[in-house]
Design a protein around this nucleic acid. Structure first.
Length: 955
RNA sequence: GCCUUGGUGGCGGAACUGGUAGACGCGCUGGAUUCAAAAUCCAGUUCUUUCGGGAGUGUGGGUUCGAUUCCCACCCAAGGUACCA
């Protein structure tokens, strides 16, 4: 009987769905295992072959853990808020919810086809109100919390209020806005309610603040840095300006150090940890305060605070540079310099930050006319502004040490500012000297002769003495802007009273997204939610009301922004533990049982987005006692990207003629990409199919070589734009899901990115056919197929396995188990192939070999494994069958020759019985050494023998 | 520039703590089966050779009886990141 994968796969997919084979229970005597794949955004294009790679890997591991006796949680859901559906809505008017629903349906069909062991009863969708209710809930918890640096954790805002009532804010050490004024307990009690709220807002973990953003007036929205190209929007090419807007922000900076420290505790890929480390960007140094020299003695003393990692070079300061946006610029600029400074500031404002960063080479700046006083020498230091100083990092001001920093050096050279040398024995006539390790300070008063380390320590203590600075740790990480001027996102559970934000009471969540007429900003420039006619909160009725004009004093406007894409994905892994709970985000029992994710697989592109924000929220949830672990994913693996192989035709310029790949150099040609599905394995193009594909090829002439049109190939990211997307559907249709699963694993190491290429899929497909054949003689003992369903199958061969059979099996068990534990899924496919070839050659019919083999294969190729399992006479799914136990004894041979080479010339063979004891082996090796000594006149220094392995002679 | 990862046949890739490099698959070559094809099976396939061998894991050194594996320098590729003071 042939391997009918269509019938088999259909049968078992239905069986699993009907019997809820993979339903996970929140109570079990078994140990738990939580395996998670990053949930997808359901795009209109459907799944391509790159998506399932990580899912297959997670699925193999989940199924393996199930065989190993774990209670496995393996959920799937959809990150279903997002921009594409909204843009589609803007173009067509179709509600994003409908687009999303359709896309999800298609995703689900495709996922089901691949035979994943997901517990679909736990599916979540971030755009579902029952889900985003809890996203809103977390937002409220963040709003109601502050970060206490003394206890180093988030606490309820009430503890802060208590501190204020007791002693004002002077003793409070909190993560808060820099411009928070000092006040006493008396002040506090004297503040109005609104004043109190304003103060508290500066401490909350999510807060409203004026943030400088990239605003695109034409699109009516804020753009991320990477949405801007050359100062104009990527879409449409509209101008973009820097603008201050009131936005919600998340105080992730409060967690900077803990996010850094936490990386040591988790098993994540090094490159990913490194990008998070860089992103957080911790640097140690000092904050130094310079007094501005004022011509007007009436004026209050202005000070400039700078951050430096090289306080040891303070005597090398010859000027200061402020970012053009710095608050003091307008204040300190002298009348003579005003025109020049204003022009420069204006010119800089027009450039985006990214633009400025890209333009590293040009030196530019303007003198403000003002001077600062050196804290030690009391000398006057000119204050410049320059766009090489970024307002967003540090304090937006630097003390420039041209001899020790190349940028300062270039600036000083360009504007003829003196470059004092403060390094012992270093020539700085050509470039700055920045090597900390070999620094010896000179010309620096009390720092002379000291190393970088000594001088830094000394100067910080001196600065502290004179009140001009402190040692400081600075982070590159910035608070995360949390507002988006979009429709298709979570609404904020926020309404405004007298301009101050108020949280909607938890019991009235979710605050549902309203219907709108159009998905664009309103004419007055408000976000799309401003189009909703019923968008206000009635506190008394606790409802969203339909008309703001009704005569009721208690109706307040709601927040019109929505949350960003990462909001919904920052806690979904916890919600999976108890996704239908309407009373709480999850029950205590559920979180106590599942704890955290044991294995998380997904793409590395989320390194500084989702994977950082979700760690932040988890730490917050931990601080507030909602979750037991402050890192939610112990082990994380980045699966590599599967790239596409685009097909290229060569159009002869100015014609509608196309030259084949080998002939293209004879003409001037343009490269055009065509649908890869029109090309076969040997790069031959189906010309007729191409004519039908797009009208421009209808009348085209093709210049062939050897009667064929050969295309060029280019490996690049799979994208609709390059026509190189390969869908799994066609592969499933032709070879089956098991073949696809095996093949995606066989393609190469999980973490490596690799081009998709169907050339090798016949190899794994024929393996499955061989596997089927290995078992089929047994079924053919039955005159007919076993009865349908689980019952009644006759048990097959009870033949005793041979020693050879057992050896083959246990070799396979050992390798497959090691491979799965190490996530080297690619090599187990080879192991299976070898195993089946050997057992076929051995004419193995023994049930005690074939049963465990089916279990070994089942994580990889679950459908065929289930079918074989049933035919072997089992009534239960193979999913819970215990993983075969490896036994060393079956691998042991009576003796084997092992080669050992000496001096790289002569070869000897040492024959060692492998089942001999350690003492015996050592005795044998001693004897061998003696022989060597006689033969060679020298002895290896030490000999180690491992049973079953080659002899190691270690130097 | 900095950080990270990698570099092995025609191709994808194996090789666990240093121990017969190239497993397994694709492709290719030859053969069997077939009227023929598909499918299947068998044999061969790193390069080179005067058939004894010789060379060989990006390049050049080093440690070692022995190096794809460890150390140093360099080259190349991919990914991340950047006037970060």
């Amino acid at each position: 009987m042939n391997y009918d994968f269509r019938q088999i796969e259909d049968k078992w997919q239905k069986y699993w769905a009907k019997n809820k084979t993979f339903k996970a229970s929140n109570t079990s005597d078994k140990p738990k295992f939580y395996a998670l794949s990053m949930f997808p955004y359901p795009s209109g294009a459907g799944l391509h072959v790159g998506h399932p790679l990580g899912y297959i890997a997670t699925d193999i591991y989940s199924r393996y853990k199930r065989h190993k006796g774990f209670n496995v949680l393996h959920p799937m859901g959809y990150d279903s808020f997002g921009l594409p559906a909204e843009q589609y809505a803007i173009q067509t008017g179709q509600h994003p919810a409908i687009t999303t629903e359709n896309n999800i349906k298609r995703y689900r069909e495709q996922l089901d086809q691949l035979g994943f062991s997901f517990d679909w009863d736990r599916e979540v969708r971030t755009s579902n109100p029952q889900y985003y209710k809890w996203t809103q809930w977390i937002f409220i918890q963040l709003f109601n919390s502050w970060y206490n640096k003394k206890s180093d954790k988030a606490e309820d805002i009430s503890t802060l209020v208590a501190l204020f009532e007791k002693a004002g804010n002077s003793k409070v050490e909190a993560a808060c806005d820099d411009d928070t004024p000092a006040f006493t307990a008396e002040d506090w009690s004297g503040f109005s309610e609104k004043e109190k709220q304003e103060i508290l807002l500066k401490y909350r973990l999510t807060y409203l603040a004026d943030t400088e953003v990239n605003w695109c007036p034409a699109l009516g929205t804020v753009l991320a840095n990477d949405e801007i190209v050359n100062g104009v929007s990527e879409r449409g090419g509209h101008p973009v300006i820097r603008k201050k807007m009131t936005q919600w922000s998340m105080r992730i900076t409060a967690y900077a150090q803990r996010l850094l420290d936490g990386l040591d505790k988790i098993d994540w890929p090094q490159p990913l940890k490194d990008s998070q480390t860089n992103w957080i960007g911790r640097s140690e140094g000092a904050s130094v305060t310079f007094n501005v020299i004022s011509s007007d003695s009436e004026k209050s003393q202005d000070t400039i605070e700078v951050f430096t990692t090289r306080p040891d070079t303070i005597f090398g300061v010859s000027f200061m540079t402020l970012a053009p946006e710095h608050d003091l610029v307008a204040k300190i600029t002298t009348p003579e310099q005003k025109a020049e400074v204003d022009a420069y500031v204006e010119a800089t404002a027009k450039r985006s930050e990214r633009d400025r960063m890209a333009d590293v080479k040009t030196v530019s700046g303007v003198f403000t006319g003002a001077y600062a006083e050196h804290p030690f020498t009391k000398e006057s230091i000119p204050i410049w502004i320059g766009d090489y100083v970024l307002a967003s990092y540090g304090t937006g001001a630097v003390m420039a040490v041209p001899c020790g920093d190349q940028r300062d050096y270039d600036f000083a050279k360009y504007y003829n500012i003196p470059i004092p040398n403060i390094f012992e024995g270093i020539d700085i006539s050509e470039e700055a000297f920045a090597d900390k390790a070999t620094t010896i300070i000179a010309n620096s008063d009390f720092l002379n002769g000291l190393s970088y380390k000594e001088a830094t320590k000394k100067v910080i203590s001196e600065l502290e003495k004179i009140g001009h600075g402190v040692g400081k740790v600075n982070y590159r990480l910035r608070d995360a802007v949390f507002s988006r001027q979009r429709y298709w996102g979570e609404p904020f559970p926020v309404y405004y009273v007298d301009g101050m934000p108020q949280m909607i009471d938890e019991q009235h969540l979710p605050l549902e997204l309203p219907e709108v007429e159009k998905y664009l900003p309103t004419e007055t420039g408000e976000p799309p939610l401003g189009n909703a006619t019923h968008w206000a909160w009635d506190v008394e009725q606790c409802t969203v009301v339909s008309n703001q004009l009704i005569d009721n004093k208690k109706v307040f406007p709601l927040e019109l922004n929505t949350m960003p894409g990462w909001a919904g994905s920052s806690q979904y892994f916890n919600r999976y533990m108890d996704p239908r709970n309407e009373e709480a985000i999850f029950s205590k029992e559920a979180i106590d049982y599942w704890q955290d994710v044991d294995l998380y697989i997904g793409g590395s592109e989320h390194a500084t987005g989702h994977l950082l924000y979700s760690r932040f929220w988890q730490k917050f949830m931990f601080d507030r006692g909602y979750v037991p672990k402050d890192e939610y994913a112990q082990k994380l693996i980045n699966q590599g990207m599967i790239t596409g192989t685009s097909a290229i035709v060569y159009r002869i310029s100015g014609t509608n003629k196309y030259a084949s790949y080998g002939l293209k150099d004879e003409y001037t040609t343009e490269e055009l990409r065509v649908d890869v599905n029109l090309v076969n394995v040997s790069n031959e193009l189906d010309v007729e199919a191409l004519r039908d594909w797009q009208p421009e090829y209808q009348e085209a002439d093709f210049i062939l070589e050897d009667g064929k049109y050969i295309v060029g190939r280019e490996v690049e990211k799979m994208s609709k734009r390059w026509y190189n997307v390969v869908n799994p559907d066609a592969i499933c249709e032709e070879y089956g899901a098991d073949s696809l699963r095996l093949y995606e694993m066989f393609l190469g190491p999980l973490e490596q990115s690799k081009p998709w290429n169907t050339a090798g899929i016949t190899g794994v497909h024929s393996f499955l056919k061989k596997l089927w054949k290995l078992y089929s003689p047994l079924f053919d003992l039955d005159t007919e197929r076993p009865p349908a369903g689980r019952a009644g199958s006759r048990s097959v061969t009870e033949a005793e396995p041979t020693a050879e059979n057992l050896k083959t099996l246990h070799k396979t068990i050992k390798k497959v188990e090691e491979d799965i534990e190490n996530f080297s899924f690619n090599t187990s496919v080879s192991t299976f192939m070898i195993c089946v070839n050997e057992l076929t050659a051995q004419k193995c019919t023994s049930k005690s070999i074939l049963e465990p083999l089916a279990i070994l294969v089942s994580p990889y190729a679950p459908h065929i494994a289930e079918e074989l399992w049933e035919r072997l006479g089992h009534n239960e799914s193979i999913a819970e069958a215990p993983f075969p136990k490896f036994e060393e004894k079956y691998l042991v041979e009576s003796s084997k020759e092992y080669p050992i080479s000496f001096n790289g010339k002569m070869r000897f063979k040492l024959e060692l019985p492998l089942d001999m004891g350690k003492d015996e082996i050592e005795a044998a090796v001693m004897a061998h050494e003696k022989t060597q000594e006689q033969l060679q006149g020298r002895t290896p220094k030490k000999v180690i023998v491992v049973p079953g392995k080659i002899v190691n002679i270690v130097g």
